[in-house]
Amino acid sequence: MTAFDQSVLDQLHLSEIDQVSFFKRDEVTTDLICCEVTVGDKVWFFHEEGEGWDVLLVHLSKLPGWRSDWFSAVSQPPFAECQTIAFRR
């Protein structure tokens, strides 16, 4: 998903989120940080270049037990495959 608004966040009820994972994609000259949010049998995909990324992160950070160090865990080392689970119910 490249852009989203409040209507998307309204569908991501914190009490219904099962898992939030972050990973990065090698885009040849840069890494693209991506996020998958699992709600029931639906997986929502977002990435850092999408409009609303910061709003999404603020929303998700309200989850109980949120892993606040997710960025450092997924971003290093550069161009290496990394996946981090920031929340799991």
Rank of each mutant, 00 (worst) to 15 (best):
W44I: 01
P77Y: 08
R67P: 07
A73G: 14
K24Q: 03
T84W: 06
E48R: 07
C34K: 09
Q83K: 13
D18T: 11
S7V: 08
L60M: 11
Q19D: 09
Q19A: 09
V8F: 10
R25K: 09
A3D: 14
P78T: 04
W66T: 01
R25E: 02
W66L: 05
E36K: 06
F71K: 09
V74Y: 03
E49W: 00
F22N: 00
D5H: 15
S21A: 14
S61R: 01
K24G: 04
H47G: 00
I85D: 07
V8S: 13
W44N: 06
A86N: 06
T38F: 07
K62R: 12
L9K: 12
W53K: 12
S68R: 11
E16Y: 12
A80W: 11
V20F: 13
F79I: 02
V28Y: 04
S15M: 14
W53F: 01
D10Q: 15
F71D: 04
S21Q: 14
L32A: 00
F87R: 06
T2W: 15
F87V: 05
Q11P: 08
I33T: 00
Q76M: 08
S61A: 05
G50F: 00
R89H: 12
T29N: 04
V20P: 10
C82G: 09
Q83R: 15
V8N: 12
D18F: 09
L63Q: 01
E27M: 14
W70I: 02
L14P: 13
W70D: 04
F87K: 08
A73C: 12
I17V: 08
V37A: 01
D41V: 07
S7Y: 11
C35H: 09
S21I: 13
V39F: 11
D10C: 14
T30W: 03
C34P: 01
V43E: 08
L56K: 07
F87W: 09
D26P: 01
C34D: 01
D41L: 10
H47I: 07
V55K: 08
F22R: 14
K42M: 10
T38H: 04
Q83G: 14
H13V: 09
F23V: 15
K42H: 11
A3K: 15
E81I: 11
L12R: 09
V74W: 00
A80M: 11
V28M: 06
L32P: 01
K62M: 05
E51Y: 08
S72T: 04
D18S: 10
E49P: 00
E49H: 04
P64D: 09
T29Q: 03
D54A: 00
L57M: 04
L57I: 00
G65N: 07
Q76G: 05
Q6A: 13
D69P: 05
